[in-house]
Design a protein around this nucleic acid. Structure first.
Lengths: 113, 113
DNA sequence: TCTAAACATTAGCATATGCGAATATATAGC
DNA sequence: GCTATATATTCGCATATGCTAATGTTTAGA
């Protein structure tokens, strides 16, 4: 039981564990957007974005409503936005290590500028 | 740049995206524990736990210090605990959907009890 | 220095994930 | 009904992840 609770949490984190899906949620932070608008903002393949939206839908992180030809997405629960905000705080607190983790120290003399 | 920032966040979420690693962090919530203590609490294979600890170490979510024969782990930044707490709130808010997601509705007449 | 204990790492395999290309579905307008 | 547009789904493949079993490494103590 405790185990399946953690599986649930892990599933949510898994849904958040991709830069494109994080970008989608951040774009939706200020209100709903159509799938097309997201595709344009992201500048990615339509199918690819649609698959990421499917992940967020399956894990119920976003809501969608259909208006005529298009589908508008929104963040279902502001808690998710709070999680992303916390992660931004975390990022700022550990910027240096973050850069190392991202492998941007390959050119040491350039890295920190 | 914006992209690699999101990659960093995604990497953190990825590290959180496993029930065993969530369990480890929750066990470490109240203070440090040795690897052995974690293995015992989790009741899992030694190598398996050690690999999950390696993931948390690599992503810098935990600190470790060696004392004689043992290695003690602790959560590096309480923000991570806050993230887990937020996720618990999220879980409670969406308990019903969570159960469906976990596939525990297979026996509908039993599910909600 | 030999052994046991505590951890870590590697190897090999099975499953999951992410991507682009192609295909399917639904709706609006004619 | 036909066509175009918006979006979703499927397929095939490449890479990543997780697990167990086996092997390494470090330290304490006899």
């Amino acid at each position: 039981m405790q185990e399946s609770l953690r599986q649930f949490k892990a599933d949510i984190f898994q849904a958040l564990a991709h830069p494109t899906r994080i970008a989608i949620l951040e774009f939706l932070r200020d209100g709903e957007l159509s799938a097309g608008a997201l595709i344009e903002k992201l500048g990615m393949e339509q199918a690819n974005v649609s698959q990421h939206l499917a992940v967020l839908r399956t894990k119920q992180l976003v809501l969608n409503r259909k208006v005529g030809n298009q589908v508008f997405y929104s963040v279902r629960d502001p808690i998710i936005i709070e999680v992303l905000n916390l992660m931004r705080t975390y990022f700022h607190a550990h910027l240096k290590e973050a850069l190392e983790m991202l492998g941007e120290m390959e050119k040491p003399e350039e890295a920190v500028r």
